[in-house]
Write a protein that binds this DNA or RNA. Structure first.
Ligand SMILES: [Mn+2]
Ligand SMILES: [Mn+2]
Ligand SMILES: [Mn+2]
Ligand SMILES: [Mn+2]
Lengths: 218, 218
DNA sequence: TCCAATATTTAGGTTAGTCTAAATATTTTT
DNA sequence: AAAAATATTTAGACTAACCTAAATATTGGA
């Protein structure tokens, strides 16, 4: 029904919409997709014809409900495959994304239904991101950035913002993964850096790190 | 490295080479791929430039060892995914092919290594076809067509030639699957039809059916 | 052998998705 | 409010993979 390129555009536009609440600019799409703005204009016009998004020249785009439907299904597939790779094939969480980028485009309703059941209908992927249900519904999430916690506050790691290998490997080195409990022991006002307690270890993290870890407080 | 179209051509040419022992004609490829001979000529010339096959105008093509390598790897992936779909996701053997056609193009050495291990390094796919190893080696198979058996001979079903849903569903109805033991009770010289014993049932099958079931005798 | 049928290639065109360069619109600065 | 900077679109081209129609080669039968 939709080509690989079309699916990737819809997915990217969906993510950008979530991030910035509102219409998405041509340049933002181009940058995220590592392509040229002129290519984006072409594709956006095509997707507008297909009623997947609304588009006014020079004004940016917004997905229609149809476009959101496609986007969330692709995201659902991406995240379910990531769970498969980590849970069943024992991939490390920092090496599943590229493979999932390919698997997310395989077309088969039955496949995804069965895969979901086989994995035990997981709610989150290995990076803590929620898996949309068959109807594209995503549970509103209750999480904040570690950098928002104050001294003495505790939290449980529920996800990461940055998902590069480098960052995920850093977290591994510090024994931080989904479900890890942590507490802010000290916070430097000047640069936002923190001392945190993880298990029996205490160590220093920069603001950059703290801004890329999602935690749930209770 | 190779596009989806290129992989499909190499795979098809490999299969045709196996079937007819010798160079493969442009028209044979076109027919099998449901495309036009002129398109085949284009692609074959491109693949010849890439040293994946040898090609002399009007004389047909033969895969080089490089081409065979690519082809067998795609076939390996196809068949491993078919095993996954049947063994793990409980697909029926008549509905895995289309999905495997897509999955076979996912590029990741680690994925296929892990998948193979996860499935217990199977030697055959759900249709009884052998799974090439990492080096493309396929065990020479010891099988014959049910239609070649003489009266009174026994055999075990080890595969099927035809893999359409219709045929596979017919086999299911008759309780014939990989591993099923059968014996020829009678054979009609005139049309090649047979009466066979399968479990506690005896029934008539036409020559067409018998020519699409592979058996191993012992 | 030679001709008609068949197989194959070539020529030229199409579509999807990309690009660069140029034109135009919008936004920011002065 | 204009000029300058930035964002976006348009125009024109390119490649991969396909197609149709026409040209050319091969082959099997009289
Ligand atoms: Mn991912
Ligand atoms: Mn993820
Ligand atoms: Mn198959
Ligand atoms: Mn098979």
């Amino acid at each position: 029904m939709f080509s690989l390129a079309e699916e990737n555009y819809l997915k990217t536009i969906y993510h950008l919409e979530q991030e910035s609440k509102g219409g998405v600019s041509t340049n933002a799409i181009a940058e995220r997709m590592e392509t040229k703005p002129s290519s984006v204009t072409d594709m956006v016009q095509k997707l507008a014809e297909k009623k997947m998004l609304s588009y006014k020249k020079y004004k940016g785009t917004t997905l229609t409900s149809g476009g959101k439907k496609i986007a969330t299904q692709v995201i659902r597939k991406h995240r379910l495959w990531e769970v498969f790779l980590v849970d069943k094939l024992k991939f490390h969480w920092d090496e599943v994304h590229e493979v999932a980028e390919q698997l997310e485009h395989v077309q088969s309703d039955k496949l995804i239904t069965r895969l979901d059941a086989y994995l035990g209908s997981p709610d989150f992927d290995p990076h803590g991101d929620p898996i949309p249900d068959k109807d594209g519904y995503v549970k509103p999430t209750e999480k904040k950035l570690l950098s928002e916690l104050k001294k003495k506050q505790r939290g449980v790691c529920v996800g990461v913002k940055e998902t590069s290998s480098e960052f995920l490997q850093y977290l591994d080195k510090k024994n931080i993964t989904i479900g890890t409990k942590m507490q802010v022991l000290g916070k430097e006002f000047f640069d936002g850096s923190m001392i945190i307690q993880v298990g029996k270890d205490q160590f220093f993290i920069s603001k950059i790190i703290a801004e890329n870890i999602y935690v749930q407080t209770n």
